[in-house]
Design a binder for these strands. Structure first.
Lengths: 220, 220
DNA sequence: AAATAAATTTAGACAAAGCTAAAAAAATAA
DNA sequence: TTATTTTTTTAGCTTTGTCTAAATTTATTT
């Protein structure tokens, strides 16, 4: 795998995210995303095209090639693993991790990232609930939904917790719920919209409507 | 604290290390250290002088200013904390950590480094036995010596272990000795050159000459 | 369909950090 | 003390990634 500059990686990552929505990306969009000028974007597009990372015809918009996608997934993997590390190990708050991970993601040692992944226990979602590509660049496609929306006998992994108040965290800790927790919905009660949930071999716990509305999961 | 480019930081760090030996540094020395050309060094010297990080008169050699020293200590702190992390947490072998830390040291978030320091338990020596500057840039001056050379009633911190064989690690683990372990020499026996050592509140242990010759410490 | 507006690209500049080759200063030798 | 060698600096060029201003292409109106 070749090495790309910080700037190239930032362009590739931004294109990756923008094309997730629309399939194709425009010069102005990308300039906006990267807080740069359209002329600078055009320059970089030529370079990325020359390196076969991009499908691009002047004036016609662009999207990543298969190779470009691979590079993007590598950057996303690094970014999200570092975010997980910063949040879980270094106890950064959720609004601080993105900026620091923006720098760390460009340290490109593959061995570093694979060992970090192992050290963290192969997490599948970052603290924002976004899936972390695995060592082969495979990424879970399922999108985050609210725990409240799940039906009995569904299994899911907690990926995001909206309310970060101390009280909330107290409840979560008590119930052994955190990012990455695997759980299975057992019952739902119409009466108060509460649900019963099983986590591993722990006794079944009850989750109130209020709580369930603040927990986001990936169905599996 | 201002921000410096990766290149500036590498120059400053190299000057810091070179001037530890001789007090002052020459253009050729620095070019050799950084695997670059003397002409490139001169260019950077002018820039660092303009930023008041360097005392420099053309043709007369140079050394870091007080400000330059502060910057250098910051880089060294980051480098050594990352080395410690890579070795202790990610289980990198000792010959792999330097290269990766060369990249990580340039991620400049102060909060990241201070939290990493805390997460690691405020280590005072990196895996090579070199002291880690603390949050205020203070660095322990004492140099690494062989455990075998210590006399009774001396206290020291383990900073380096030469032989990394599995058998060696087995013995160390059994005796609760690792990088950072504080110990006190109690007795030495001329007969077999073994020594008795106390670690914290654990019972006194015996260390053979063979073992002591492979453990390096900082006297305190 | 022609006119206007918006988006995109090209052309030309600039700063950072490197290089080579030539000039200048300092150190060493004859 | 000259002459020569070594070290250091200067001058000018290159690449990467950015910018502004002008030109071009595409889209939108009237």
């Amino acid at each position: 795998m070749l090495n790309y500059s910080v700037s190239e990686e930032n362009y590739i990552k931004a294109i990756f995210h923008l094309q997730e929505q629309a399939g194709t990306v425009t010069t102005n969009e990308l300039a906006g995303e990267l807080s740069t000028k359209p002329a600078s974007v055009t320059d970089m597009l030529k370079k990325l095209k020359a390196k076969k990372l991009l499908h691009y015809q002047p004036y016609q918009g662009f999207r990543l090639s298969a190779d470009g996608n691979k590079v993007a997934l590598g950057v996303v993997r690094r970014h999200r693993l570092w975010e997980y590390f910063l949040s879980v190990k270094l106890k950064f708050s959720w609004d601080e991790i993105h900026e620091v991970a923006e720098d760390l993601e460009h340290v490109s040692s593959k061995k570093l990232i694979d060992k970090l992944d192992e050290f963290l226990g192969f997490p599948r979602f970052d603290p924002h609930g976004d899936p972390i590509p695995d060592i082969n660049g495979n990424i879970i496609a399922s999108k985050t939904i609210c725990l409240q929306e799940l039906t009995p006998d569904t299994r899911a992994i907690v990926s995001n917790i909206k309310d970060q108040s101390t009280q909330m965290l107290e409840v979560l800790q008590h119930k052994s719920i955190g990012i990455g927790t695997r759980l299975e919905i057992r019952r739902k009660f119409e009466y108060d919209k509460s649900m019963e949930v099983k986590i591993g071999r722990l006794p079944v716990i009850t989750i109130s409507e209020h709580l369930a509305k603040n927990i986001f999961v990936q169905a599996i």
